[in-house]
Design a protein around this nucleic acid. Structure first.
Lengths: 183, 183
DNA sequence: TGTACATCAGTGAACGCGCGTTCACTGATGTAC
DNA sequence: TGTACATCAGTGAACGCGCGTTCACTGATGTAC
């Protein structure tokens, strides 16, 4: 049942997209090839027609997730300015999203133990995010160190808000971080 | 080869301590019972004489790790004040430690997907850390919302500093966060 | 205090399972003439 | 344009492995008398 080149390329993209979502939902280790292929509507056997091994798919999926978070933040920056982008990131909607947008908050501690290729991918995403945040919605430059602190606070607040079992504390963390970053 | 009650209790503590270290090094999922028992100098078969199942050990190990981070921060606060405690947390030594002190920075994204028992343990640790940070080294109260923002920035900066493959960027993140939090 | 027996901490083999990976196979697609 | 054949996307069974968990066993510890 060979597929046309266009169809095969679409299949590959579907696998990457499914992997990108599943990995942000469950983490890298807990996302099996079987699960990711099934999420793309395929059986596991065909995986190696598209990717060398699991690590290569993970790297591509994280690159896709990185493009997405950079795109969303960029879009929010240009649409609602620096404050709007921060408020959107620190919203309960982002905290509770079935597929978290930000791969750093979703995967941070797992990415630390990844191999060089994956670390390279996520480092590039981090650098792009910092450059984005070092401009406000109208393209004016703010300082790089301010961007670093802002992103650190955003990611840390989201990680802590998702850890706690106490809903009131979780919302309090997001609210405090938001209020502080919006001055 | 039955052991005395005291010896058995010491064994149990050793397992919890070994698990606490290994889990912060490698994460929960990547720490097998076999590895944790071996780290305590035992074989895997005896595990169920001490714990009901893996999840119960993980919960205890995280409680122990929580006690440790609360202890370290408390000690630093009383020894070198608020600024000293923050500087110590955001040091490259903490970033590169074989066994990370802070379980939130080390395990944040994995804890999010844990069961209720484990979330309860980590929530309690988070609350204790916030109460600690809401006092300075001399016992004076600062605001709770400030403690939340400070801890968010600390955890986020450590997560990001550990993710990046770029050593210069990693150190820059820690330095920026430190400078900002120390005013 | 001594003796006989029950308890149980720890060992090492075994289990069922899901993992990443491989492979023989199918049949539509792509290519050479 | 039509025909013959090579290619390869996708399927489903199979592999070796490590996982969490169970279990028969050992022999020192704890207990009853």
């Amino acid at each position: 049942l060979r597929k046309s080149k266009e169809e095969a390329a679409r299949t590959r993209e579907a696998i990457v997209a499914a992997a990108s979502d599943l990995i942000r939902k469950r983490g890298v280790a807990a996302s099996s090839l079987n699960d990711m292929m099934a999420a793309a509507g395929l059986t596991h056997g065909g995986f190696y027609r598209h990717f060398q091994d699991k690590e290569h798919l993970v790297a591509e999926a994280l690159r896709a997730a990185g493009d997405e978070v950079v795109g969303v933040v960029s879009c929010n920056l240009h649409g609602s300015g620096r404050k709007g982008a921060i408020a959107s990131y620190l919203s309960t909607a982002h905290r509770d999203a079935a597929v978290p947008t930000c791969l750093f908050a979703a995967l941070g501690s797992e990415l630390r133990r990844s191999g060089k290729d994956i670390k390279g991918v996520t480092s590039a995403v981090l650098e792009r995010l910092l450059q984005l945040l070092a401009t406000d919605g109208d393209g004016r430059e703010t300082s790089r160190s301010q961007a670093i602190v802002t992103l650190s606070t955003m990611v840390g607040a989201m990680v802590l808000a998702r850890i706690t079992a106490d809903q009131a504390l979780s919302s309090e963390i997001l609210a405090c971080a938001k209020e502080h970053l919006l001055e």
